[in-house]
């Protein structure tokens, strides 16, 4: 009995989920903004479909109306709407490349390079520091002084020296 009740409840939930998703969205809903701004307007304005306000843009109004219909009548979520337009126009309609396939390289390459260069710089500084330590022994009294003040004073003296000589 309890099992049957649970099954009925689960079935009801499955049936009602899409109906619940079909909300009463309008153009001021944050969800509308989120869904619309993932697409690039192809009218040449250089903006996404939420922002495009180009006079005479033949695409933008139709896009906004369609997206609102998909949200309110078809219960589409962000991914459904994305898939719909990508299947129609291709990846170029998205404001940013996909995070899969070759397009993933767009996202990761800068960080891979930064990490590589970061490693290179750490290696370089280590090399220089080691070389420098071999050349001279540290003065233990240095650490007792306030280095910032010492540095500022040195730079002041340096500046003055430059002016007078």
């Amino acid at each position: 009995m309890i099992g049957r009740l649970l099954i009925i409840m689960v079935l009801m939930l499955i049936v009602t989920v899409p109906a619940m998703a079909q909300g009463n969205y309008d153009r001021n809903s944050p969800e509308f903004r989120e869904n619309t701004s993932q697409f690039m307007c192809l009218c040449g304005c250089g903006q996404d479909h939420f922002e495009c306000n180009m006079e005479g843009c033949g695409l933008n109004e139709q896009f906004k109306t369609e997206i609102l219909e998909m949200m309110n009548e078809d219960g589409y979520d962000k991914n459904d709407i994305k898939e719909h337009y990508v299947s129609m126009y291709g990846e170029v309609i998205l404001t940013a490349p996909e995070k899969s396939g070759f397009s993933l390289t767009a996202w990761v390459t800068p960080f891979v390079l930064l990490a590589g260069a970061g490693g290179g710089i750490i290696y370089l500084i280590r090399k220089w520091v080691r070389k420098s330590k071999q050349l001279m022994k540290p003065d233990p009294t240095d650490e007792l002084e306030d280095e910032t003040e010492r540095e500022i004073l040195h730079s002041l003296i340096d500046e003055e020296r430059k002016k007078h000589f």
Partner: peptide, 19 residues
Amino acid sequence: SEAVTGTKVTVGVPFFNTV
């Protein structure tokens, strides 16, 4: 992207903001 895969992509504000 177009040269390597033949796929046209757009790199807009969300990409730059994220990266």
